[in-house]
Structure formats: C-alpha cells, structure tokens
Nucleic acid binder design. Sequence first.
RNA 1: GGGCCCGUAGCUCAGCGGUUAGAGCAGGGGACUCAUAAUCCCUUGGUCGGGGGUUCGAUCCCCUCCGGGCCUACCA
Length: 706
Amino acid sequence: MPRQILVTAALPYANGHIHLGHLVEYIQTDIWVRFQKLRGNRCIYLCADDTHGTAIMIRARQEGRSEEVLIADMQAAHERDFAAFDIAFDNYGSTNSPENRQLCGEIWQSIRAAGLVRAADVSQLYDPVAGTFLADRFVKGTCPKCGAADQYGDSCDKCGSTYSPADLINPTSTLSGTSPEVRSAAHLFIELEKLHAFLDTWTQSGNHLQPEIANYLKGHFLGEPLRDWDVSRPAPYFGFEIPDSPGNYWYVWFDAPIGYMASLRQWCDKTGEKFESWWPREGTINESAQPPTSNLQPPTSPEVHHFIGKDITYFHTLFWPGMLKTAGYQLPEKVHIHGFLTVNGEKMSKSKGTFVRAATYLNHLDPSFLRYYYASKLTPRVDDLDMNLEEFVAKGNADLVGKVVNLASRCAGFVKTTGLSARYPDDGGLFAHAAAEGEAIAAAYEECDYNRAMRLIMALADRANPFVEENAPWNLKKDPAQAARLQEVCTVALNLFRQLAVYLAPVLPRLAQQAGELFDRPITKWTDASEPLVDVPVRPFQHMLKRVTPEEVQKMIEESREEAAATTPAGLPLAPPVPSDTAQQDSAAALAAEPLTSECSIDDFAKVDLRVARILSAEDVPEARKLLKLTVSLGGDVKRTVFAGIKAAYQPEQLVGRLVIIVANLAPRQMKFGLSEGMVCASGPGGAEVYLLSPDNGAVPGQRVH
RNA sequence: GGGCCCGUAGCUCAGCGGUUAGAGCAGGGGACUCAUAAUCCCUUGGUCGGGGGUUCGAUCCCCUCCGGGCCUACCA
C-alpha cells in the first residue's frame, strides 16, 4: 500500500537570494521526494517564502519600497532559482498569505484555549526617529563594565560581559543614529513548560529525530524547565496582527512553520485534495509518542516530514511540535536535520568568492553536477557538508560523464539501425545483480544516506564498463557474422546504463528524461530498473552532460567575489545571521552612517536619467588626488567623458570594458582637468571603499534604469 | 566559559571489539580506440591525530592531551 507523505523544506527568508548553502537543503529534500514518487508513494513537496519580521521591514525601508513589493520580487527570484535546479515543489506559497493568516488564527485560538498564553511587559529600547523597537543588535554604545566604545546592545566584545541594551552608556540606534529611549510594551508568551512532559516523550521516542539531536535536546533544553516563548512583537512590525491583541503581531517564528500548512491548504485548493487527509487533526500524546508502527505493519496515516538546517533545530523540535500538539494536529513523523555547507573546508566567504548565489552558479555550471555532488556527500547525520571545488569537478566528470553516460555514448551508435535485441541475452548476471541491488539503494535513499546510495550505484557502473571492454563491440562490428552478438552486447550495456539512470533519477531527473528518450520509453517508476528493455529502437545518441572545467568553476568564484565586493563594505563587521535557515542579516552600520533622506515622488525620481554605459577607456589623472578620467559609451556613437572619484578604489585597466550605471542627464561640470559630462553611480563611504554599480548580465549600454 | 561533532592513504570518505584496514579520485606502469583525451588492467601509498587504560585481542570502548569545525553564552 503506497504511503502518503507530506514533505517540507525550511522556508527561505525573503531577505536574501538563494545561495549554494540553501541548495543543500532544497536538493536533499527534492531528491527524497522524487525518490518517494518514483517508488510509487503519494508524496508532495511543499515550501513557501518566509516573509515577516523586522529584517524585512527595515530592508523595505532602506530600499524605499513596500514590504509587499520587496517580498514579491524576492519570491519570484527564489522560485526562478529553484526551478533552474530542478527543485520541483508541488506548491510554493508565502507566509504572507490569507491561508496562513487564517491558520495562525486557528492555532492561536487553540493555544489560548489551552491556557498557555500569558502577557508580560518587556522593556526595550525604542528608536523614536525610526519609529521602531530595537533588537539588541541594532543598538550600539559604550560598555558599562569596561568602557569599550562601539559595542552591541547585548554583550561586549572587549571584556565579554553581557548586559541589557538599556545599560549601555550613550546608546545609539544603528538605524537612525539617534539616541533610543526605553519603552515598555506588553508581549505575549507561550508557556512551553506546560508541554514539557509531552516534549520529553515525543523527542525521545520513535524515530522522530536523529539520535544526536534527541540527545542534544535532552541535555540542553529538556533537562530543566522550558522558558516561556515570546511570540508577539509590538507595532510597527511586518507580519500578522494578533486578532485578540490589537497592536501586537505574531513573531515571525510563530507564523513561519504554520506556513507549511498554509502551503498545503493552497495545494489542496488547487488540486481538490482534502487538507485533513494530509494533515489530520488527531494525535493524543499516547498515539503520537509511540513509534508509529511495528515492523509488520506499514503506516496507514499520512506522514509529515520536515527537512531543516541545524540552526533552526529548536523551533522545529520543541516549539513546533508543541504548537501542533496543542492545536490537535498530527505531529511530524520525522524532522530531518542537516549541517551547513562549507567550501574548500571553510565557511562560505564573500571576499573569497565562495559565497555563491544560485543564479551565479547557473551562469557558469550545470545544475545536475551540483545535485550529484551534494548527493554524493550527504549522509543522515547532522555533519557539515564540504564542497571541495577540485573534487566537485573531478567527481562529476569521472562518475557521471566517464562512467555512466559513457556507457550509452560508447554503445548507442552500434545499434542505431537495429535497436535492442528481441530477447535479453546472457550477461553473466550483471543485470540481475544490479536489479537485486535496487532494494539496498532504495534503503539508502529512504534514510537519506545518499552518499551510500551513490557509492552503491557507482559500484554498479564500475561493473558495467569492463563488460563493454571485454566484449569489444568495436571489434564485433568489423565482422558481419557477429552482427547478432554486437546487438546483444549493446543491449546489455544500454540496459545497464538505463538501470543506472533509474537509480539516479531522484538526483538527476534530466538524465532520466534523456535516458527515457533514448529508447522512447520514459522512466516513471523504480521497478523500471528490474526489467530489461528489449526489442525497442535506439534513437540517435545525443550528449547528455557536458564536462565541467576548473576554469568554469574559477569564473564562478570570480563573479561571486565581484558581486560581494560590490555589496559588502570592507572593514565593517557583518551582523550575525537572523535565526532563519542560512538567511543573511546585513550590518546596519551603513545606513546609520548616512541616514535616509526625505521622501521624493516618482516624478522627482523620473528627472534623474540613469543609463547603462560601458567604460571604453579609463586613465589616471596624475595631478588629481581622487579622479580617474573615464570615457563611456551609451551605445552607438554616443560617448561621454566622466571624471569619477574612484582612483583609490580601482585600477584604470580593471575598469575597461565593464558596464556601469551613470547619471546621464546631469548638468556638465567644468573641472580643473576637463569637462565632466555625467556621474558614475557608486556606493560606499569613499576613499578605497567605493563600489561601482553594475547591471546584471544582459543589460546593454544605453538602457535606461527605471 | 559551557556543549556538540570531527581527526582513517596526497584528497573526499567507508568501515569496525577479531584474519594481512577498504573505495573513489589523484600518482606510477601497461592496454585499447567504440565513446565527451572517455574506458579497461596492474600498481605505489596508511605507526586508523598523540599518550594512557579496559581486553586474549582496539582504528573501533573508556580517560586524557593536541588539532579542526560548529553551536551557545552570567542559564542549556
């Protein structure tokens, strides 16, 4: 009986673009979902953008647009990136959706009704200019203990002491630069301790969590009373207002996991499926805390599986089960937790160019290679995953191109006119052996041990190529009397190839598609690997995967470094990440250094004619302290001379050829060294810290910036 | 400061209380020419981080030290 499985990946935060770190999770999950579907289980993959919170509100303000516009743009970009990596969601929603608002309300009511909510005043620093309460990290001042200047609101880097931001001497808001005041506001708390017994049982029983996670929770959180969870934020806050507490909003981490359910509701509305049959309202402590089934009986109820990164463990293993339990919803069958991505053994680094956005990767490399590489490195454990770039190139080329695709590539040509033999020939047990390995491979996929699955599959490929070698079809071809034998040998080799394509289908859907097309027999189910294909035509072989080169990888790294250099002020510390899966939180220092100016109308903005321009030449102005003389093209014969104060930041030769944005209708200005006919757009405080703006690939000189 | 994880061949990793510790890649030698300079065969290479202990026997269990990573910080 097919299982019914609902799978989620963590909701990416709308504050940043998808990068290679995010993709570990979405690819890991996508592989698992594709595997389940291939096995004949009913499985859906749900996700959504996580859109609420202070960070979004601040960013929208910084960018001078509404939160809704910001999150819509980001969601479109996220979905584009996911699709390009063959990450196939059954539904992709948003936490800022009516479905989510309604579900939050329902669950909130249940928690209220269960008597788990209490109110308490929280004193926080408030920025009267920005009109918002300030999280600790948005306040800087002098340490009250040791007097060190410029310390964040929660602790001192110098002496290590911790304190409340209100204790800081001369506190300053990093948003507006003004001095914040202490204000008190009522917050709502969920008394998680009342669920302690349930959480003890749920986390430690069954197979809901990896052993190291269950152990971690036991030792770190469950060994003492659980603290109340502050789930409200006072206005202004971008999120949902709490219906029975006007002026207060649900904290982003309250509504984010409910977003899984909201996405399910959208999917149900789209497909006519019933919400209750995928996420039933049931599950008392006794039922849910026990292992769901014995070995004899397959589960009959739908399963909910969450895939998350280790940074958001406690939201998904304590708060979320607590919420579900209280609201009477079925609990997750399993929360699968993975580690972080490192590149060449180190944390991803913007300055080293190893902080690679999904879109940047796609400019240079094939998504299939990343899917395979991650698969070959993923285990069921919480360990970090290292992406060694040399290994990435070697492994993809050797395994996928050299071993797997090569089987088809070297044999398909011999049988393009005859097709495969009418009966499957004696192959010394090769096919049967690989078919028998299917269950071991499936077991590895099932438990997320993709590393083992890939090793098992490649071991099969390692048996297939020697078969071709021993039977040397290229020699058989020379003798017309051996035509039947030639066809047999190729029938074996091509079937072995197809078997590998089936086993790799969860990882490499495109390869499975191509393998299906080669014989005009689509690969649709796992058992396609257990029956050989016979008596079918073989279509002309077409390249299935292009080898990657170290140069392409290098270009990707270069581009990432340039992107980072254009966005990250050197020398300023990055604020720590917000508690969302691999999301980025930028420092507030830049905005504080130069607060926003007064608002302008769209008509005001339209007066400024920004254009894409290409730098044709750049030369030093020796007598000038800061200036370079640039000649830029606006396309055709239209050229401008611009003096730009970027000498300390750029070498003239590195500028030639690149695209920049210029203010094209700025009144010409006579300078000591000549007439400047425009202005090149750049950010940064000045000196060596000047960062030219670049358009994305595809922009051409002369285009106006709107 | 507390906690967790890791340290096995040049690299990435498997393994496991018990014959002589494995794989892929890289390196060396040879073969082949069908294939995306792919493939096949042979081969070099490890005091399983150091030191103690338990055991008939330890890479595996325990202690400790060293090194690396991550999390969290008047709490875990």
